[in-house]
Design a protein around this nucleic acid. Structure first.
Lengths: 113, 113
DNA sequence: GATCGACAAGTAGCGTAGCTACGCATGAAG
DNA sequence: CTTCATGCGTAGCTACGCTACTTGTCGATC
């Protein structure tokens, strides 16, 4: 799929990935690719700036470590980030419902199963 | 909801609205507002440029008419637009599925058919 | 008869966010 | 020695929706 249509939901995805445990940037990219079965193959130029955004916002915290002579910046979800993720989840569901009303065939009324 | 997160899906919504019949810009805005129960209250500065984009792309065709001394540009879905809508629907479903894998709580990973 | 609000269209300029295309560095493999 | 995978990062571009504004008619109110 075209990953560029993530607009506005990338942050939520990153928080969701980090919810399962701290990861460094490169591993996050691989995790997204794995869990989406290859659908989400995001370039570093997308992920790294996004992570810094999230850190500036206080949703994640990073720590440097050296593994095999390679510098790694490991990101971890903060409490604030956990709350943000909950909000993102709620926003996603509303978004999904609203757009689905127009794009899904038979889900007309407000009656989710 | 914050409408700015429509990113990439606005076109699909517009095509979906026009699928049910030709409408002019202002009426499209009202239709979106009505069918979304007020969630989508999009400004003209969003809709009109989007419609012209769709027209340039050949997905809609417009005709001028005058009603009560007021100029109306009525937009109609073209065959190409209908095909595009089908594609947008498919894209939406994949998007929904992919993001849902991360943001929905209990949706299993491999989606058994 | 002036003004206000709903209707109806449109543009200019802005900010955000993801993408492309780079650069830098290490270690393993050929 | 070159290439590839790992790992971080930035600069510049583009697309898109938003804010704020303009133009104009019509009906109602002041």
């Amino acid at each position: 799929m075209k990953a560029q249509e993530l607009h506005g939901h990338l942050d939520a995805l990153l928080l969701a990935v980090l919810e399962q445990g701290a990861l460094h940037g490169y591993a996050i990219i691989e995790s997204l690719r794995a869990r989406s079965e290859g659908s989400l193959d995001l370039p570093t130029g997308t992920i790294y700036p996004a992570l810094r955004r999230l850190e500036r916002a206080g949703y994640v915290a990073s720590t440097w470590s050296t593994v095999n002579g390679r510098e790694r910046r490991t990101y971890e979800l903060t409490d604030s980030g956990r709350r943000a993720l909950a909000g993102e989840r709620a926003g996603w569901h509303e978004f999904q419902l609203t757009v689905g009303r127009f794009l899904d065939p038979g889900s007309s009324s407000t009656t989710p199963a």
